[in-house]
Simulated scan of single mutants.
Amino acid sequence: MDEHAHPSPVGIRRPSLVGIVNITADSFSDGNRFLSPTAALAHAHRLHSEGADVIELGPAASSPGAEKVTAAEEVRRLADVIDQLVADGIAVSVDSYRPATQRFAAARGATYLNDIQGFDDPARYEELADTGCRLVVMHSVQRHGPATKVRTDPTVVCRGIDEFLADRLAALEAAGIGRDRLVIDPGLGYFLGSSPEPSLRTLAGLERLKARFDVPVLVSPSRKSFLRTLTGSDVSGIGPATLAAELYAARSGADYIRTHDVAALRDALTVFEALESAKESGW
């Protein structure tokens, strides 16, 4: 399955849309709304019907101050939800850096494993190679669990993203994980620091990042702290800023966009493509 190739009539590659389902008590944007399997499944099916190519299940929050959740609790939260989605033929990604949770997800049919620590244990690479899952290798200034508030220099961050991804991709490939299974995520928001500048610089440099690594790129500006700081909006009012950042990412060639509001992004992309098509037709 190659979800990230959806050509428009004028050759623009529509990104795959990854719908976020937080099965958590304290996610910054929607904590406790989808903690029960019934609520999580209803939301996942709604996002899929709105155009999500992939449903990403997050069994623990990674925002600053989030509670620590054991692997056993992550598995408990995931079990009924992932089983039903896989049975329904829906591509599932699981967002967890815990090895036990990743093993569980792979065994239950997850298509993607998304690790905010970027798969930092080489001793597990042989095991990961055997899963067959696609791996979303995420960069973070903080690679030891939930994000913390740090201030960082944008130039240093961007250089660190390049160095980290180059080293990590080389190590994963050397362990026998095919490049066609790898997706990179430069990280945004608190994963890059508490000020907006590193995230803005990273998003603005997306085309360069794609050219540098020549693998699919996933980004997730949805409701992130850098947008809230930049606009002065709270989570409830951050939709327009999120959509602007997502459209910028799509125009810059993002292969996957991970979002809370699939319908809004789907419609915006449809209008964007229609306008591009009209422009190409010489109206």
Rank of each mutant, 00 (worst) to 15 (best):
S96C: 00
S140V: 09
A79M: 13
G189A: 00
N114M: 03
S96H: 06
Y190N: 12
V75H: 03
A170D: 15
G193I: 07
Y97R: 02
R181N: 02
L165Y: 12
L169Y: 06
L172V: 11
L135I: 04
S195Y: 08
T101S: 06
A87Y: 03
L78N: 04
V86A: 01
C158A: 15
G189N: 06
A129T: 07
R159W: 01
A123M: 11
P154I: 04
G145I: 00
T111P: 00
A129K: 14
P186V: 10
P196A: 12
A175F: 10
V137N: 09
Y190F: 15
R143K: 14
V141M: 09
P99S: 13
D95Q: 09
A175T: 10
L169A: 07
F119D: 03
D83W: 05
P146A: 08
G145N: 02
H144K: 15
L135G: 03
K68N: 13
S93N: 08
R143W: 11
A100R: 13
I116V: 15
C133I: 09
V94Q: 12
N114E: 01
N114F: 08
D83A: 13
Y97F: 15
L113F: 05
P122R: 12
P122D: 13
R124W: 13
A170H: 12
G189R: 00
E127D: 15
E127T: 11
I184N: 07
L128M: 08
T70V: 09
L135F: 09
E126C: 00
V141A: 11
R124C: 06
S96G: 01
P99C: 11
R103Q: 12
A87T: 03
A71C: 10
R181H: 07
D180Y: 05
S194N: 14
P146K: 05
V183T: 05
V150F: 08
V150W: 08
D153N: 15
R134I: 07
I161L: 05
L169H: 00
L78W: 01
E126G: 15
P196H: 10
